[in-house]
Amino acid sequence: MLRSSSGIRKARKEKDSLTFASASLDGTIKIWNISSPAPNFTLDGHLKGVNCVEYFTGGDEPKLLSGSDDFSAKVWDSQSKSCLQTLEGHSHNVTSVCAHPELPIIITGSEDGTIRIWHATTYRLDNTLNYGLGRVWAVGYKKGSNQVVFGCDNGTIMVNMNST
């Protein structure tokens, strides 16, 4: 974890690299190299604090997902340092983001209790799930399968994405 003057947030490492991203309550995402004490660059586009970041590969280009207290998630091109798409629709803070490694989906979880499934190429909303378990805090997946797990205030649920 990294500590900043605006809060503490998780850092995620880019695959096969010495580069990682950190999320901050000041609304920024910083991209770092493990060998340097200063960030390589800053992504600025959220209106409120950033809660989560996750690298993924979309096509051939490395991308970054972020979720924020501005009720949105963003897809960033980590090469051009630009926002490719803003994923809107949650009615509360976005607390988790995930790109499934085998399925062409992006998953966002929120304090509104919903999980949104987005197409990883078109960024269109495919489905909204609500299991009645309260705020969604974590999203994970089982490699080599279509199973996704959600951690919520009132429990955890694993679902097969083919049946949602």
Rank of each mutant, 00 (worst) to 15 (best):
M158H: 09
G49V: 03
H90C: 07
I34V: 14
Y141G: 07
I157A: 14
T121K: 10
K48E: 01
T114R: 09
K30E: 01
T28E: 00
C52M: 04
A73L: 07
V159I: 15
P62S: 11
R12Y: 08
K63H: 15
K15F: 10
N154K: 15
C98H: 13
S91H: 07
I29T: 01
G140M: 04
H92W: 09
S35E: 12
Q147G: 06
P104I: 09
G27H: 00
D16L: 10
L84I: 13
S80I: 02
I29Q: 00
S36F: 07
L64P: 08
K143Q: 08
G7N: 01
N33Y: 07
T42E: 01
P101I: 05
S36D: 11
T128A: 08
W76P: 01
R3L: 14
G59I: 08
L25F: 11
T156N: 09
D16N: 15
Y131M: 14
N51A: 07
D70C: 01
S24G: 00
T57H: 11
L133P: 11
E14K: 15
S5Q: 08
L18I: 05
V159S: 05
G58S: 15
N127A: 12
Y123L: 09
G151E: 09
S68M: 11
I107T: 13
K143N: 15
P39L: 01
L25H: 04
L84P: 02
T19C: 09
E61S: 11
G144A: 12
Y123K: 06
G58N: 12
T108G: 13
F71I: 11
Y55T: 04
P104C: 06
I31V: 15
T164L: 15
S6E: 00
